[in-house]
Write a protein that binds this DNA or RNA. Structure first.
Lengths: 153, 153
DNA sequence: TATTGTTATACTCTATAACTATA
DNA sequence: TATAGTTATAGAGTATAACAATA
């Protein structure tokens, strides 16, 4: 049987809801990030990229400090770190000052990989912001930060 | 000052990355959504709310059409629909015209619940946008839509 | 042959609670 | 007692592949 033409659905109020548009945009951006890395033969999630940047800029930090900076629970961090350590990108060293904590760091391979990843993220960022002027991109980030700060009430 | 302030981590380029700010904002907004519903003694995710609105405005639509509108796989939709049907908010009826498809609809209880949910979503939206003028909120949605349309390339 | 819905399966992300070792 | 890291567990969200019923 011939398929009827795709009728556009009635989306009601959804297109005017900031939360809804934010969620759909984030989903599309995530897909673009994944596709960018897949096309380059690399595998990394946005969360892993953020983690690598923070460890790179704050060598020796603890898992608690990292989890807090990422906004996730310390138990959530464990399997993520396990994966990156299994890929030899990150190391857990013994802290010299506190036997309870680990001093996190990038391996040389991790630092090299981060440099490659950063170029891919750059390309990805350029693509998703291609419809916006530089001023608009800055404005978008500023508005998002205001929303972020008003949320989690 | 009695004691030194906690040292702020170096976040490197992350605060200037649209994808990063988008992800953190979405996470905060999600937490606000959840808290809004929990405080009211209701349980609903943003995705479930979007689903209910689409079913309400397009009674009789199929699971494929709904999955496409939500941007998810048809297999992903099944357990979500099972949950909402178990809560007696949504029904799968036999389609009169195509034996393969289900005609989805809200139950009377589902329609009543959606009215309550919509009020909570309104309060949530008002709160997360409280730092923005009406024009800024419109602008933010417009910029997000541009980003969404440039992504998933 | 193609489509719809379902199932089986597999990851990731997220959390809470309890355990251990250390402070 | 309190903190850091781990483990066990659970739930949501996401997907692919394969299957039955129907078109």
């Amino acid at each position: 049987m011939a398929r009827p033409l795709a009728k556009t659905l009635d989306r009601g109020v959804l297109p005017s809801l900031l939360g809804y548009v934010l969620r759909r945009t984030q989903s599309a951006v995530f897909a673009d990030f994944a596709a960018t890395f897949a096309r380059a033969g690399e595998a990394l999630t946005p969360g892993e990229f953020g983690l690598l940047v923070l460890v790179d800029r704050n060598a020796g930090l603890s898992q608690m400090a990292l989890a807090r900076a990422l906004g996730i629970d310390r138990s959530t961090l464990v399997p993520i770190l396990n994966r990156l350590q299994a890929r030899s990108l990150v190391v857990r060293r013994a802290s010299p000052t506190d036997g309870r904590t680990h001093a996190l760091g990038l391996t040389p391979a991790g630092a090299a990989a981060l440099a490659r990843f950063a170029r891919l993220v750059s390309a990805h960022e350029t693509r998703i912001a291609a419809g916006l002027s530089t001023a608009e991109t800055r404005k978008l980030i500023e508005l998002l930060e205001k929303v972020r700060d008003r949320s989690r009430a």
